[in-house]
Design a protein around this nucleic acid. Structure first.
Lengths: 320, 320
DNA sequence: ATGAAAGCGCTAACAA
DNA sequence: TTGTTAGCGCTTTCAT
């Protein structure tokens, strides 16, 4: 029996070209021998690896774990495999890994919220889609950050708050810039000032947030509510409030971002902006896949909704 | 200029075989053209992909994120890439992904604390090392769970506790069996009984732990301390204690496991057993690499130490 | 309905 | 020191 017959059968192109009996024979033999087609040879010949790469800034963050899951299940359904790169994991901001990936012949690349490694953009490469990072040229899947922040601010404003501060991650990424802009817009929309006295910045850890929070809460007049760029920062701020003998939500309302698992476990449970990270991953896969196939109408923009989860860290303005 | 010359130069085997001037020329040209050797062809020819696969049960758990990082940096240093598979991510317990990986020609496979997918063990496959899962045949890297539990129990015993319960993850994995055995041993060692009345079981979520905790804490006599299989379960138990008006550590001491980021953020901050997840990942890579190279003295067993981090969720036995 | 043969891009043994 | 050549295992076209 010849190679080509086997190839035809095992790659499911046998219908109408190979006798059913022969096909069954082939499958039985393959099964018995535990035969697995060699992916390298297949890739070499066909020029496609049926693999897509996903670059995330920090896989240690559960949010990105969910993104990976969503991506993995969408990819598996389409017969693709996803390969994860943690940009911090290799000590080169992902450059080394992305280079390795491209060599490896990924058919597509998903880059989440970090300056895309140069290597990802080099010409001649596979289609790239950016996640949570608006861009003029590349296709993107973005979160409705504005909507999420807006909902949070409406909630706070509705509770009577006016001095609503913003605890920012001190990281120059569009995702954080978008949060800041939406915060300021909401304040302006309510006829309020979005001054620097309402802004605090810190590194992306709860320890840094605690320190920055202590400074922020020492200001006079003190903010009565704080919107935080992430749940981790909100957790640090909760600690700072406790440091200063402030009660949440009695003296201070706190809103987080991401709805990480810990949000529910904090004291008090955190009001936070949630988005469906798994859907984000799945959607991004759908988009690259369309570009890989070369679809005429492959989407260039996709959005993932956000929503506000109200728990116990927000309450009415304290009456002095 | 011939293919072989270029190949020699670019794979760093030029010394003494290619003129320095030619080599420079090749490199310059490669650089200018942005030439990347085709990994599929290289793999096909050489039979090695310089890629190792890592299978984890739940990438959403920060612990596994750290494992991946450790693995990734050790691998990068050795010129390898690591490919992650989340066993839950593809809806087939990792079978589909592992099969894909093997097709992809991983040179080695790391499997963390889940029944290794059948596909991983099929004969003719690459070397496999198991993490946190003792096994007779395969090489393993295991945590010193006994040591960790022992330290926690000594701590509790030293505080005067005698009714030390065990809140267990209801999952049949060796890692949890080891914790249970060590818990019982410590109790016996102190002349105490390790009866079923001190045991509670629940699914691996804080909600389940909260429910199980409520039941456990309603027993008479009530345990004065609880060892939990994971920080997430401990977080659920903290909630249960609060449900019942119990104070921690005043009325109840709680010990977690893993030292997840949230441990520090809970109220009160959690006493917990820590291990260096990053080191675990790195060590596992070192071990597979040795097996891949076919080293005579490739290690079959490696251990990662654990330690007890004492925070504020444990305290002296309540005086009735 | 099946088989023969070419070639994907690389490495390595060998020849010049 | 450089070039020629033979595959690695597969897919696919073309002949049978």
């Amino acid at each position: 029996m010849s190679q080509s017959t086997v190839s035809l059968v095992l790659s499911g192109k046998a219908s109408g070209r190979v006798a059913a009996a022969t096909a069954d024979l082939v499958r039985a033999a393959a099964d018995e021998l535990g035969y697995q087609p060699n992916a390298a040879a297949r890739t070499l010949k066909s020029g496609a690896s049926r693999t897509i790469g996903l670059v995330v800034p920090d896989i240690t963050n559960p949010v990105f774990g969910h993104v990976l899951r969503g991506a993995q299940s969408a990819a598996t359904a389409a017969g693709y495999t996803v390969v994860l790169v943690d940009a911090d994991g290799d000590g080169t901001g992902g450059e080394a890994s992305v280079r390795a990936l491209r060599q490896t012949f990924v058919d597509g690349l998903l880059v989440f919220a970090i300056a895309p490694p140069e290597a990802a953009l080099a010409p001649g490469g596979p289609p790239v889609v950016l996640m949570d990072m608006p861009d003029g040229d590349l296709p993107t899947v973005t979160l409705d950050l504005k909507g999420g922040v807006h909902a949070a601010m409406e909630h706070l404003l509705g509770l009577g708050h006016e001095r609503i501060a913003h605890l920012r991650a001190d990281i120059a990424e569009p995702t954080f810039a978008a949060r800041a802009a939406a915060w300021a817009r909401a304040l302006h929309g309510a006829g309020l000032d979005a001054g620097e006295d309402l802004v605090a910045r810190c590194a992306f850890t709860h320890t840094a947030a605690r320190a920055a929070g202590n400074t922020l809460l020492a200001r006079d007049p003190r903010p009565t509510a704080v919107l935080c760029d992430d749940d981790l920062l909100a957790a640090g701020l909760l600690l700072a409030a406790r440091d200063r003998g402030l009660t949440v939500p009695g003296d201070l309302s706190v809103v987080g971002f991401d709805d990480m698992p810990l949000a529910e476990l904090l004291t008090p449970p955190l009001t936070t902006v949630r988005f469906d990270a798994q859907a984000l991953g799945g959607r991004a896969v759908d988009v690259v896949l369309a570009h890989i196939r070369g679809d005429e109408d492959a989407p260039r923009r996709a959005w993932i909704e956000t929503s506000l989860v109200v728990r116990e860290s927000t309450g009415p303005l304290p009456r002095p």
